[in-house]
Design a protein around this nucleic acid. Structure first.
Length: 523
DNA sequence: TTAGGGTTAG
């Protein structure tokens, strides 16, 4: 690095030069060098400035070096810079990036003056640690205090909307951005694309994509990924070809998006082609994500043996995620023998993951081996493992309503259940037959249907239908995957109510319209 | 000279 060489020639470097160099290292992705230089500065007995601290704290943030950062924080206090606006902002960001949100918030709360950067650091801090709701709460607090957001604020807020499926807030952000004459730069534009895709409106995402004056590899990848998660494999591939012809060079993440799009749409040949091109033409070494996609691509399409061979031929020990992908395919194709074999690998690797037991149990049940179902259940009880609790949510106006299975916590409970019972009657008249998913805890038939009827997504849909006008689309967000019965029931619901219903489950979107799902039952 | 932002599998 040029700066380093220049530095070495300088006699008696002072605080200004040190700070500048630390900043350069920190900015250019050499956090270790920045920290070494800071330590050198201390041994030389040079004074630090607020410029020194912001840069070195940023370097600690980049490394998530919590202990070291705490030490630097204490130096800043001793040197009297702990109430400096810039230093405090960098500390808010540092603690959040190192996973200590409590201290991050403490620093934020004690700031007498908060710049927009400090607000943004707090919002993105929550968001990047998975606290999307809290991120939005801080944003709302900021609005209440009359602080003007900038484009960085919106990027984090949009990211939170994507995670929560909060389409209404996301749409408000877009309107605000346009209405207030914000420049939609490439980062903000990409965030909008991502938000609309992940909130179920991929068409709107494409409109933004088309309207952007600058598109980089991340923008293209976000759009391809958007098509993929909606099951629009052909559009994803088409865009990928367009990217190759006139866009930036794809990166390895682009290939994850392409392969996943192919897997979800059953485009096996296209997927194989892309995977070969990735290795041979673009020179990327496949990572775990690519392997998972390939196993998923082959497995979903029914090439289970080939998928198994693929895993065995790959170098090194396969990651649990790769076995999980194959196990999912075994369940989908009801391949009992292979499923058990795969589950053995998986349970040896991750004996405490309840999802694996549930999947294995379902495979046993679909093969009619209820004795084995019982055995798996006993293991789970012995190990104290519990199924992850499923929930579904629906946005009505600007509020989000979340439902659990058999949820009776709402004041409208009686009406919701009456509406749902009536709906189920109509469904049955239209030809719907409940198909109990082989569930973990063997239930009697009637009980089984009872439980199915009140799955969280059905409650959320009922509530959504009751509280929206005819002809509008109902959007549901579910934290787990749908069961086959709900999938079938929602197809019928789209017919008898003449509504479009969009469900985002753990992995992808399902668009139900006139009795058909966009996934073509390939999921 | 300082602090804050976008894409990825199951």
């Amino acid at each position: 690095m040029y700066a380093r060489q220049v530095f070495l020639t300088v006699q008696n470097p002072d605080t200004f030069i040190f700070s500048n160099l630390i900043k350069s290292f920190s900015k250019c992705g050499y956090p270790h060098d920045a920290i070494l230089l800071y330590q050198k500065m201390k041994t030389l007995g040079l004074e630090q400035s607020n410029f020194t601290f912001t840069s070195v704290i940023k370097a600690c943030a980049d490394l998530s070096a919590l202990k070291l950062g705490r030490l630097v924080h204490s130096h800043a206090i001793i040197s009297g810079f702990s109430s400096d606006l810039y230093v405090q902002s960098s500390l808010v960001s540092f603690y959040a990036k190192s996973g200590d949100l409590v201290v991050s918030r403490e620093v934020f709360d004690t700031m007498p003056d908060r710049s927009i950067v400090a607000w943004n650091a707090m919002i993105s801090g929550y968001e990047q640690n998975g606290f999307s709701k809290e991120a939005i709460d801080v944003f709302l607090e900021m609005r209440e205090l009359g602080v003007q957001p900038d484009s960085t604020t919106f990027v984090s807020v949009l990211s939170a909307c994507s995670h929560l499926g909060a389409l209404n807030l996301g749409t408000w952000v877009q309107e605000y951005v346009i209405g207030n004459g914000f420049d939609v730069n490439v980062i903000l534009g990409t965030s909008l694309i991502n938000m609309f895709s992940k909130c179920g409106n991929v068409g709107r995402a494409r409109e933004i994509f088309n309207g952007m004056r600058e598109l980089n590899v991340i923008t293209w990848t976000a759009m391809i990924s958007g098509y993929g998660m909606h099951g629009y494999g052909n559009q994803a591939i088409e865009l990928f070809y367009q990217m190759k012809a006139q866009g930036p060079k794809p990166n390895d993440v682009t290939f994850v998006a392409v392969l996943s799009a192919c897997a979800h749409a059953g485009l096996v040949d296209e997927g194989r082609k892309a995977f070969d091109a990735m290795k041979k033409i673009y020179g990327f070494v496949p990572r775990r994500e690519h392997h998972v996609c390939m196993v998923d691509l082959l497995g979903r399409a029914g090439f289970l043996d080939e998928a198994f061979q693929y895993i065995q031929s790959a170098s090194g020990k396969p990651a649990p995620a790769i076995w999980t992908a194959l196990l999912g395919s075994c369940k989908m194709h009801k391949n009992f023998d292979l499923g058990v074999k795969v589950a053995e690998h998986l349970l040896a690797e991750e004996p405490e993951n309840p999802a694996h037991y549930v999947l294995l149990s379902n495979i046993y049940a679909s093969a009619g081996r209820m004795d084995r179902v019982e055995m798996v259940r006993e293991i789970m009880i012995k190990k104290g493992l519990k199924k992850q609790i499923g929930y579904s949510s629906v946005e009505i106006d600007h509020a989000t309503y979340t439902f659990f299975m058999g949820d009776k916590s709402y004041p409208e409970t009686t009406a919701i259940y009456q509406y749902l019972d009536e709906l189920m009657r109509k469904l049955k008249n239209a030809g719907y037959v409940p198909e109990p998913e082989p569930v973990m805890f063997a239930l009697e038939d009637e009980e089984g249907e009872f439980a199915l009827r009140y799955h969280s997504e059905k409650l959320a849909i009922a509530f959504g239908l009751m509280n929206s006008s005819d002809g509008t689309t109902v959007r549901i967000f579910k934290n787990l995957r749908m069961c086959t019965d709900c999938h079938s029931a929602i197809k019928f619901i789209s017919v008898v109510t003449d509504r479009e219903i969009i469900v985002r489950d753990k992995h992808r979107f399902h668009h139900f319209k006139q009795g058909v799902c966009s996934c073509r039952d390939y999921w």
